[in-house]
Nucleic acid binder design. Structure first.
Length: 155
DNA sequence: GCCAACGTTGGC
DNA sequence: GCCAACGTTGGC
């Protein structure tokens, strides 16, 4: 099993939205970056755990934990001409973009970006790399344990 | 609103 | 294949 960090702008889709979704499960749609898509396609598996990270807001940071509830499948919004995420080059036969489904496991004590940066144990987190903009990044098991145990106080 | 950093596009 | 121009991300 692998660990991930998935960014979402709370104005677009927040942890509250996921909590309110049927079965606390929703499609992680709208990823339009090949590297992030390939992570979903090639490396994400059912049951993987991910931090739900709020970006592009006043208080960027981790707000909860979710689980991959369905492996990668075509993102419906690429076919929807009315969607912000419409891609005229995508076809049903040859979809370009994928998404997974995620289910909320739990809200967690909030861990800010500033807090994450304070800890040398997390210095190698992909999220914190200079210039990183990837919306889906891997998290090492040791980093996951440090954040969940030491910073969130979870078992 | 600013701007650094990155990804994509398209002319050549 | 190169690379300049442009668009986007996302923290501040």
């Amino acid at each position: 099993m692998r660990y991930w960090l998935m960014k979402s702008e709370p104005d677009e889709f927040s942890i509250d939205d996921l909590e309110r979704a049927p079965g606390r499960t929703a499609a992680w749609f709208g990823v339009r970056n090949y590297q992030a898509r390939n992570f979903m396609r090639d490396a994400m598996h059912l049951g993987d755990l991910a931090f739900f990270y709020h970006s592009g807001c006043a208080q960027p940071g981790i707000a909860g934990i979710c689980r991959v509830a369905r492996g990668a499948y075509p993102d419906a919004t690429q076919f929807d001409a009315a969607s912000l995420y419409f891609d005229p080059q995508a076809t049903l036969e040859r979809p370009r973009w994928l998404n997974v489904d995620v289910q909320l496991v739990r809200r967690t004590p909030w861990v800010s970006l500033v807090e994450l940066r304070r800890h040398p144990e997390l210095a190698d987190m992909r999220l914190l790399a200079r210039g990183n903009r990837l919306s889906i990044t891997p998290v090492e098991p040791a980093q996951w344990d440090f954040i969940t145990r030491r910073l969130m106080g979870l078992d």
